[in-house]
Design a binder for these strands. Structure first.
Length: 663
DNA sequence: TACCTCATCTTC
DNA sequence: AAGATGAGGTAG
């Protein structure tokens, strides 16, 4: 007698009540199938089949993993329903909070729940799970937090958090600030009330620094970063889930860490591109935490040396008050910053310094710092920026006069014939370029500096150690000793006791990037480096090689990230770019993009830009609405894409909401 | 009439 | 996305 597996298992019977499980299956489904599937819960699984557990189910014939989202009495699909194969483990890994958050993130970014859950919940590691839970550590006592007195609303902010009140904030750290210590004080303050804290930083070096700072004040801190092995990662994540730790420090996936009773979420340096998830649907840590804090009734702290336009918007809309230092505190803390553009560059008289293209002021600043026994940071731009055009005179990025997009020379056939510049966003041809800043009509290609900087500096400063940090080989820390430290942006080592000087070389190249965020990014990179330099009173000097008249350079010289963020935001408001508006990009072959646009039912403020060619016979359309209609935009794009995947149109389109780069 | 290919349909 | 189903065509 032949029997099917189901029958041989002995006539499975459904659980007595709520025998229908709604399951999110973990398979890359086409977008129109992003909804839960119903499965019958067998009686023997009744106890374990709780919402949030992992289950094993048969989906289109194959065994797959899934999350049990909820249990209900009835199903609409009684004729097709199958039994759950088994409950993988009774561990409730998807908490109601994270489920709600993941759903919201999926909706916001036009992605599927399964894709977001894959970012939020690490893969299971059975051995880590079987270990017994540690005891819950007692909350720490409230720390002194003297460091916050330098900021106008600092003490009041700490008080609010310490009294368990919800208090969002956007914090600009003073130059030289020991920001990991300040974040640790904030975390300890919230933890002392018994609530949980999640701190998200851009990379593992920052995780280590903040973890160390937090561990000095708090028992029960855990570091979560992608470089951990699967077993260790799951083990630490479980300690968060089981509520045995109160404070989580980690990189972007930690934004979803299921900390118990969260009171505060922190994102450090929200302008760092490391906070943008590289996997679909590409959520950004800042957005995830804004959403999460809102849903959880917890506070959000957006902190950095510089300030993004997005953070400025949080301030402007009243979502978060700002925490900045009074002017006299800034004067006491800031290094002396000088900008030298090409027109006023006086190269050092020293022969070797001349070879290294070092201006006299930079050479002197470095020499003084070395003499004082301190390391000198030399920031050089990374290779491989998108080729773009800038004004030949003042190096300001060449803008399209219609949409302010970046101008570039059309690539492709190299027949030598000079061709006019084109806008990379709207495709408009520019034959009569005129610089928006200085009025010059000449254009030049933006190129990046050479890798020889390190050798050349070695020759300019004989007898001093030259260290490099960047690309594959990132240095975490340098000692408090004279040395030249050549680093690419984002790879600057932490200097014990601070740098004596920072030389920000080829600053104009960073400014000239063909990017909506070029100026914001330039200031962020400069301030991150300059923020590691000792105060002017201790001889701290910063030299940036860029035109001193440019607003971004001014913002660095005056150390005024708030002014710059306001400028940046009003610029984007004027042009109609994020974060002033909500925007979606739709990529694909021309027919596919056209079909989606055709299907698109936009809300009232909706507007379509392009499509513009994207290379490889692909096109990109930009779609925008007011921020208020952001959700409607996401829904409209989702509906249009769903129609397409449902009728199995051959050419796929890729959608991104508010991408970091529009090109 | 058996068998193969390609399009369409379904996924609990 | 990918296996299951079925329409219609083709060889024998």
């Amino acid at each position: 007698m032949t029997t099917s597996g189901n029958v041989r298992r002995g006539e499975r019977r459904p659980a007595a009540s709520a025998a229908v499980a709604r399951v999110s299956v973990d398979v890359p489904l086409p977008y129109h199938l992003d909804f839960p599937f119903d499965y019958r819960i067998p009686a023997e699984c009744d106890a374990d089949a709780r919402p949030g557990v992992r289950v094993r189910v048969r989906f289109r014939g194959k065994l797959t993993d899934g999350f049990l989202l909820e249990r209900v009495e009835h199903t609409e699909v009684a004729d097709k329903i199958k039994y759950i194969e088994r409950v993988v483990s009774p561990e409730v890994v998807l908490t109601p909070e994270i489920h709600g958050l993941a759903r919201a993130v999926a909706d916001r970014y036009v992605g599927s729940l399964a894709n977001v859950l894959r970012l939020a919940i690490p893969p299971r590691h059975a051995r880590a799970e079987s270990r017994a839970a540690d005891d819950l550590v007692p909350p720490p006592s409230r720390p002194a937090a003297q460091g916050w007195q330098r900021y106008t609303r600092g003490p009041a902010y700490l008080d609010a958090l310490g009294n368990g009140r919800s208090a969002n904030a956007v914090w600009q750290a003073l130059p030289g600030e020991d920001w990991p210590a300040r974040l640790a004080e904030v975390a300890a303050t919230v933890a002392s009330t018994g609530k949980g804290v999640v701190i998200v930083v851009p990379d593992y070096r920052d995780v280590n620094r903040v973890f160390a700072a937090c561990s000095a004040l708090i028992d029960g801190v855990v570091a979560l970063s992608a470089d951990l092995g699967p077993g260790e990662r799951y083990k630490r994540w479980l300690s968060v889930l089981r509520g045995t730790v109160r404070v989580v420090v980690g990189t972007k996936a930690a934004a979803f860490a299921p900390v118990a009773d969260p009171g505060l979420f922190v994102v450090w340096d929200d302008g760092d591109s490391g906070h943008a998830e590289q996997l679909a649907p590409y959520p950004h840590v800042r957005d995830v935490l804004v959403q999460r804090a809102h849903m959880a009734g917890a506070s959000l702290l957006v902190a950095a040396f510089a300030r993004t336009a997005e953070a400025q918007l949080l301030v402007d809309t009243g979502w978060a008050p700002e925490i900045v230092a009074a002017r006299e505190q800034l004067r006491a803390a800031a290094p002396r910053v000088v900008a030298i553009g090409e027109t006023d560059t006086q190269l050092a008289r020293d022969e070797a310094a001349r070879t290294a293209r070092l201006p006299a002021i930079a050479f002197d600043a470095a020499r003084e710092a070395l003499k004082a026994g301190r390391p000198v940071l030399v920031q050089v731009p990374r290779r491989g920026y998108v080729p773009a055009l800038a004004c030949a005179n003042c190096r300001v990025r060449a803008q399209c006069r219609k949409c302010a997009g970046p101008l570039a020379l059309p690539g492709g056939s190299d027949d030598g014939a000079p061709r006019p510049a084109e806008c990379r966003w709207c495709g408009a041809v520019e034959v009569m370029f005129r610089c928006t800043a200085c009025g010059s009509r000449r254009l030049r290609a933006v190129v990046v500096g050479s890798k020889r900087t390190a050798e050349e500096l070695g020759r300019a400063f004989p007898g001093f150690v030259v260290r490099t940090s960047g690309a594959g080989d990132v240095l975490a820390e340098v000692p408090a000793a004279p040395a030249l430290v050549v680093a690419t942006p984002g790879a600057e080592p932490y200097a014990v006791g601070g740098y004596g000087a920072a030389l920000l070389l080829d600053g104009w190249a960073i400014l000239g990037r063909a990017d909506l965020r070029a100026t914001e990014e330039a200031l962020r990179l400069w301030m991150t480096a300059a923020g590691m330099v000792v105060p002017a009173a201790q001889g701290g000097r910063v030299v940036v090689t860029a035109e001193s008249g440019l607003p971004t350079v001014q913002a660095l010289v005056r150390w005024d990230p708030v002014w710059h963020a306001n400028l940046e935001l009003s610029g984007r408001t004027e042009l109609g770019f994020p974060p002033a508006v909500r925007m979606a990009t739709i990529d694909g072959v021309p027919d596919a993009v056209a079909a989606v646009l055709d299907e698109l039912r936009l809300p009232a403020t909706g507007e379509i830009l392009g499509p513009v060619p994207l290379g490889e016979d692909k096109e990109r359309a930009l779609v925008r609405t007011s921020r208020a209609e952001g959700r409607a935009l996401a829904d409209a794009v989702a509906a249009a894409v769903r129609v397409r995947t449902a009728r199995k149109d051959p050419d796929p389109v890729r959608v991104r909401m508010d991408p970091l780069e529009l090109l």
